[in-house]
Write a protein that binds this DNA or RNA. Structure first.
Lengths: 335, 335
DNA sequence: TCGCCCGATGTAATCGAAATCATCGATAAC
DNA sequence: GTTATCGATGATTTCGATTACATCGGGCGA
């Protein structure tokens, strides 16, 4: 692999000139530029990335950690992140943390080693290895949180209003005449679940149905959707509607409903969350809350780039619009 | 951020010793090591990655390009890749090429710039920017192809026997008495589709049903599954079974079948391909070909690491086991 | 005409860690 | 007792590009 020295020698110029041809072509005379470009082409020169990075202290890489890449919701967000990053000349370092704190920490140290210019984390924990960084650098720490919103950890974020969205779901169900509603949450350690639960409870309270709210806890997996929904359906007073905090769990819920030989929505209405691509192809088509995954991806990248370029002034918590998409899985409560 | 110099000064040793503490601790006396580690902890030192990389010419990164990260099949393979890479101390640089050749080329140059030690590409094209690399370095080129198999491009690969798998699907359908079978392929430019088509045609020929095979071309998307299946169902002689080359297209096919007020499998049997996590939660549960996505991911990483470590001797084309999973979406042909 | 400035290019320091080579004291071999 | 050897550590070069600073010739204003 030829170096900048080889090119300089071949073109009969200094390395500085070669470097300028790439980073500031307007400073170099056209004939000189031509000569250099010819040598570059002839030798097949490509600037060595590590050398450049060492000198500039920049990597043009964004580290993105995600609890589970095989989750369609996250992979869609990642797609948006990749798209926005690529458009800005950055590439994406992917870390699948499998919900494990240890892996989150491991990836966090990559930031400290300057293997990436910034971190976007889609989980709900700020790795301990970075807490110090945040407290010394403040809002200029190149870390952004996506999907989740925690006002206390001191990093900017982009997310929807989970509390409001969950409330809307409940309102929808109440408007259909449902009173006994089952809720399958995700792990309550994450705001994404606890906020939604707060919203759901608030709506129930408004309707005086707090007692009729049956809350069980899943883990966002299809299997937990099956399991927890079966539990709900086997209660003494069977809920007439079930609200799952993810579409995957709702898929599991559909399976559970079938297993109990019930019909959706005639016997049990069902609502998911996320509006993953598959939601509208389920049978029945799933009523769910649409999250702007692509946009969340774009937004977290924008937030991060603002910080990296010094444009950012303070913390920003961007709330993106969600939308309740009513499809065929919800209907009037049975009499 | 403290450098190795700072640590050396703080610990009262040379930078060489500090470096050795990390890369060859057995060469350094225990008390010295202790002293250094204390300074490291006190200063919060982390070796700068770019500097290390420049000196060693290694990045400990694997670049993975994928046609579409939001496709559950690919995201599952990526998960396997990430897992294996992480276990071997490598991290994953993700490139979503969106099936676009230009993006594939862009990511390819990252390899030439030494932004990654190796490339795993899950598409079917070897980027032109790397062809020269392959022809000069031969089987020691750090590039591996996953999911697809092209004997001509000169890189190792891991994949299933697509031809055989497709033949098995057809045999299954013929054994159920189906004769008129519709096939929804993917883009035929990729071996993943053409090989399957070859297998399907061969099986049809064996059964003397070549004429009764109705082949349409999709693009692996749900929407194309809907569209192409509608076309098949509207043919004069309606096929009694449909074989889609991906589970996503099969999801679309289910939708198409519902739209035409037909029942699956009573009126039309349906087979998908991949066995993504959702296949068994569709209604009816989908008969499909199970691909070992995790294993493919692990295997391509292994192949790449073998090359990077010099262990690899020649090209390897690893065929991993697939399995026809018969579920509820296939049944006897209607009379 | 003299000196200043500017545009184009070259020289050389620099980024931070790894690795080669040098050093030094102590031990072992002869 | 002298020297080869070895283990632990230090001094210095090196990786390849960027960039601050130096240089040099020519144009232009006073």
């Amino acid at each position: 692999m030829p170096t900048i020295q080889d090119v300089a020698r071949d073109a009969g110029v200094s390395t500085a000139t070669v470097s300028r041809v790439f980073s500031a072509p307007e400073l170099v005379l056209e004939p000189t530029r031509q000569k250099v470009m010819e040598s570059v082409a002839r030798l097949g020169y490509q600037p060595n990335f590590a050398a450049k990075s060492l000198r500039t202290l920049r990597t043009e890489k964004i580290l993105v950690t995600v609890p589970d890449i095989s989750n369609p919701f996250f992979s869609q967000v990642i797609r948006g992140v990749e798209e926005a990053a690529h458009a800005a000349g950055y590439s994406v370092l992917l870390g699948d943390t499998r919900h494990e704190e240890e892996r989150e920490e491991q990836y966090a140290t990559m930031l400290r080693r300057k293997e990436a210019d910034g971190l976007i984390f889609l989980g709900h924990r700020l790795p301990g290895a970075l807490a110090a960084m945040v407290s010394t650098m403040g809002p200029r720490t190149p870390i952004v949180n996506g999907c989740e919103f925690r006002p206390d950890i001191g990093v900017s974020s982009a997310h929807i209003d989970n509390e409001q969205a969950a409330a809307e779901v409940m309102e929808h169900l109440y408007s259909l005449g449902h009173t006994h509603i089952g809720v399958v949450t995700g792990p309550l350690a994450s705001p994404i679940s606890s906020d939604r639960l707060t919203g759901a409870k608030a709506a129930a309270a408004r309707h005086g149905e707090s007692e009729a709210l049956n809350i069980v806890t899943g883990d966002f997996s299809i299997e937990s959707g099956v399991r927890e929904t079966l539990a709900l359906l086997d209660e003494e007073v069977r809920p007439t509607a079930i609200f799952c905090f993810s579409d995957e769990m709702a898929m599991g819920a559909l399976e559970a409903i079938r297993r109990r030989r019930l019909r959706c929505p005639q016997d049990v209405s069902l609502v998911g969350f996320d509006d993953i691509r598959f939601a509208q192809y389920l049978d029945p088509q799933l009523t769910t809350v649409s999250q702007p995954m692509d946009q969340i991806g774009h937004e977290v990248v924008r937030l991060l780039l603002d910080i990296l370029s010094g444009r950012a002034s303070g913390l920003q918590h961007v709330t993106l619009p969600h939308k309740l998409v009513v499809r065929a899985s919800t209907g009037p409560a049975p009499i």
